[in-house]
Design a protein around this nucleic acid. Structure first.
Length: 282
DNA sequence: TGATGTGTTCTGCT
DNA sequence: AAGCAGAACACATC
């Protein structure tokens, strides 16, 4: 599933391909809920609003992608579980789940490539807003701090501020942005914290361990261009390789890398949690 | 055929 | 008020 490292890989891929290009025609074939035009822009369609706009840059907040355009527009996108952007040659057949295609004004070198948004499960979202409105929209307005930017002191503070199970807290985007099931399980495994442990009952030393492993794991996963256990692929169709390094997630029944005990899988906060019951004690 | 998993939001309960 | 469970979303996979 796309989490922070996968989304960051997509953002870097978009910056390397479509930045500086001017959108021409846009084709959509999606349910009305997938592709939305913000209220103040509704006088024109999604495609008509986008035509002629140049892509200035692409940024990330948590798992949200912001495609910043000229004329004060921002295309907010969320990949949810199976959303993908592909920068491909125009002559490649359109796939069943290609929900939007962005064509660009001709430039000498790259004129035969365009950008496709593909999503088999159709949970992904594309929404066009005025840039000034984006941060107040659902998905962004209650987003917690970036795990790669927050200081150690602030990190400890937010765990002290509440009493809830640590695994659901890490998955809560308003608690911390960008972490999902894979990296929550991995970082709790490395820090040897039980996923049911309450946030305000974790010692400061353990929290600093967790802080270190979140930074280390997310950074390494970005360097490996993400984890491809399911459908995730980057903008050029390349899979990530971090799945080779997973120690807890997708390791049910395998021996723990620390002690050899079997990794178990258990529903916690209505999601599956993978952990070592011997190393990660309550 | 039906259960499951998946990120997020929403609703309703304690 | 905070946090939790469960539903909904849509589809592939088993």
């Amino acid at each position: 599933m796309p989490e922070l490292p996968e989304v960051e890989t997509v953002v870097r891929g978009l910056n390397a391909t479509v930045v500086g290009r001017t959108i021409d025609r846009v084709w959509t074939n999606a349910p009305a809920s997938s592709i939305v035009v913000g209220e103040s822009l509704r006088r024109k369609s999604f495609a008509a609003n986008l035509r002629g706009k140049k892509i200035k840059n692409v940024t990330r907040r948590g798992k949200n992608i912001l495609i910043n355009l000229t004329d004060g527009l921002t295309l907010w996108t969320h990949l949810k579980m199976t959303g993908r952007f592909f920068y491909v040659q125009k002559n490649i057949d359109v796939a069943k789940h290609d929900l939007a295609i962005f064509e660009f004004k001709k430039t000498s070198a790259k004129s035969d490539f365009h950008l496709r948004f593909n999503d088999t499960r159709r949970f992904g979202r594309l929404r066009l807003y005025r840039s000034s409105e984006v941060n107040s929209q659902i998905g962004l307005k209650e987003l917690g701090p970036e795990p790669l930017e927050i200081s150690a002191d602030a990190f400890v503070k937010i765990f002290r501020s509440t009493s809830r199970m640590v695994k659901p807290a890490l998955l809560d985007q308003s608690f911390m942005a960008g972490i999902g099931n894979i990296y929550a399980d991995e970082t709790l495994f490395y820090a040897k914290i039980h996923p049911r442990k309450l946030t305000n009952r974790i010692s400061k030393n353990k929290l600093l361990e967790l802080y270190k492993h979140i930074r280390r794991t997310l950074t390494k996963a970005i360097n490996k261009m993400g984890t491809s256990v399911d459908s995730y692929q980057g903008v050029n169709g390349q899979p990530g390789s971090f799945q080779k390094y997973l120690k807890a997630y997708a390791n049910e029944g395998k021996p723990c890398a620390h002690c050899g005990h079997e990794i178990v899988r258990e529903k916690i906060g209505s999601r599956s949690a993978h952990f070592c019951p011997r190393c990660q004690r309550l």
